[in-house]
Nucleic acid binder design. Structure first.
Lengths: 216, 216, 216, 216
DNA sequence: TATGAATGAGACTTCATTCAT
DNA sequence: AATGAATGAAGTCTCATTCAT
């Protein structure tokens, strides 16, 4: 036995493919398709093309698997957005770019994004989801603090402002995605622009032009 | 069968008390106490002091009942906040007051607020929950539009800004409530102030003093 | 809700037969037939002619049901033997009669007796089984103490002697029953007589004639 | 395939260590530690430091392995006790010594002793366990018969008396061990003395002084 | 020969819903 | 109209055994 880098305690496996990512992928796709509710262990095993017992070789319980699903999906989002925060450049521009990046990614991968934000889960998974929110918030907080230091933004409670940005993005972009009817992407894009404009005003305390980057 | 004014399709009942509100109240309290997960039909019937069979005379399914729970709980919140929007006064003040009212109500009734925002539900209930978000957003939109008309606020996408406010309030206040550990109410209150300040800046595009009303 | 005399916390049931004894009987028969191992909840429900869900209305878990099975079966045995201890008469005679009664009952109901003595169970059920052993032992202890008082038996550790009697009866009579091949009842009867004779010698410290009662 | 002298039917193995005893040892230790319930095949293979597939090369099924475990553990106990029966000396003293030896070994190795006496098993393993009881009984029978021949003991059904002794020792010493709470070893020792005294009286039909040997 | 990943039958339990009384 | 016992589909998890490498 040993602790693997991915944090799971499993027997050492020498031969055969590690089905961990395979299962995670299948689970994530099921969740992305129909939400947590439809992601039964049997369905996940079927989707992964393995037996239910094999699934339990890699994940000790459904809860653990769902936590991994949330963590892995969330981690990716946070990484991308965090990458922007680390760039050189004005806080104001980075803030807009980070928000826009998150928004455009959420507009794709609708169902999964929604699952990461507002869908029914049990307490332990909820906790992992909350961690995602907080991680995302920290990225924005970092940018805001830089802006305050640079005098680009007025003094403010950076943590609260960051929470607000996350809330704006979720409520403005992700929650509407839950109803299946996909709106025209142009109107969604315009909506995203309005949302981000609001966030920038909230942080900067003044009107800022917000030119959405051409690349999503 | 007929459609009643209150929108419910029930069998005509001539004698005896209408147990509809009784059941709704019991269900709402159970959800407020322990969330949707713990609100089994049997438990609701017990709490209402009626038989499970009777419950099914008034609600055709658990889904329908939960939709009613969300609607009724949401309606109350919306009404209170809408009441503030209808007042005379400057848009700016009303905006702060409405936000603060929502916030303080959410800080009480944590569990219910959380259930209305982020808890696991099935698609049909999710839909009712979304309607609540939209209704709340409309209230803020009305205030913002008034403010734009009065030149108190700059021109903006009022609907998007309203969504943002709702998002800020939910993300900033309700989601953190999901972890059982109740923080000190003073820090929560300070947090609420920071959140609302952000919202006002986002709408007004400038620093606004935000004096929270003494009464909630 | 209320605590019923049988110690189970169930909803008050007004109409319909109380299926508690029906289930217990079915479970006991299954155990008597094939032991604990074969007594799956589904099989018990089938045997009782009810649905699995109904079974769980009356017993919260398999463990609880098995504990009841052990307790109810054991209680009956202890009661019968205890009845003899309460009679008037010489300790010596009562001791023989009690042992013989237990023995003859064990010779009938073989499988169940074996389950009560030596069969595989989980810890909680094991505990109930141990209680049975101790209760039976206490009956013999009472008789022995009476005999010591009456100077019929020498001074001795009555509790230990009682345990020994229980052990003799179990090992001598019940354990051999576990192999399906039923021996001739005459030889079993003779064996029982030899066992009980040993016990009487062990208690009395001298040779005692032991005339088995004609009635079983 | 062939039947080996040790009674095992195994494939002929020419090279490499015979892992039979290794596996048996691991299995026995696991059973001794946590009982049959916790002795899963995988756990046994792990404990033996071999692969599960290898385990199945030596034992065709779990049942077979458990039978071997019971047999081997039992054999050791029987051998030790039988060694005493083979000594020179008075039957009476040997009887006490044999009983005391068994008792003191049971007081150590509690869990294994309990598994050998009263733990949940399937029919085939049960059968092996019964064989152990009978073998132990035969040892005592031998001693008793010697005593009868020597006129040290009165005429009696030696087989039945021997069964009784086994029953006394099991019921008096092993069964109480099943509850985890380890009693003070002094009280256990006193209890063992009382049990053995009873057995001696049962066999000899008179009060005998029983001086427990100092060494176990 | 050895390995150990994979298998899947089967066990327990929950809870929304029905229907005879 | 009211009752609540009964139902059983469905979901999670375990572990003895197999077989390709």
């Amino acid at each position: 036995m040993q602790d693997l880098p991915n944090g799971h305690r499993v027997r050492i496996r020498r031969r055969g493919a590690d089905k961990h990512p395979l299962i995670l992928k299948a689970a994530r796709e099921l969740v992305a398709q129909s939400g947590f509710r439809e992601a039964q262990m049997t369905a996940i095993a079927d989707a992964a093309g393995i037996a239910i017992g094999t699934l339990y070789r890699y994940f000790p319980s459904k809860t653990e698997l769902m936590i991994e699903v949330v963590k892995s999906a969330a981690q990716r989002e946070v990484e991308v957005v965090a990458g922007i925060a680390m760039r050189d450049g004005a806080a104001c521009e980075k803030l807009g770019a980070a928000a826009w990046t998150f928004a455009s990614r959420a507009l794709r991968g609708r169902r999964l994004a929604h699952a990461l934000v507002a869908e029914p889960v049990e307490p332990d998974v909820e906790s992992a989801r909350l961690t995602y929110h907080r991680a995302l918030s920290r990225v924005f907080k970092t940018i805001i603090e830089q802006g305050i230091t640079e005098k680009a933004f007025p003094a403010q409670n950076a943590a609260a402002s960051a929470d607000c940005i996350v809330g704006c993005l979720f409520e403005g972009l992700v929650v509407p995605l839950s109803n299946e009817a996909a709106e025209a992407s142009t109107s969604l894009s315009a909506h995203a622009t309005a949302i981000i404009t609001f966030c920038l005003r909230g942080v900067a305390g003044q009107m800022l032009s917000f030119p959405p980057p051409s690349a999503a």
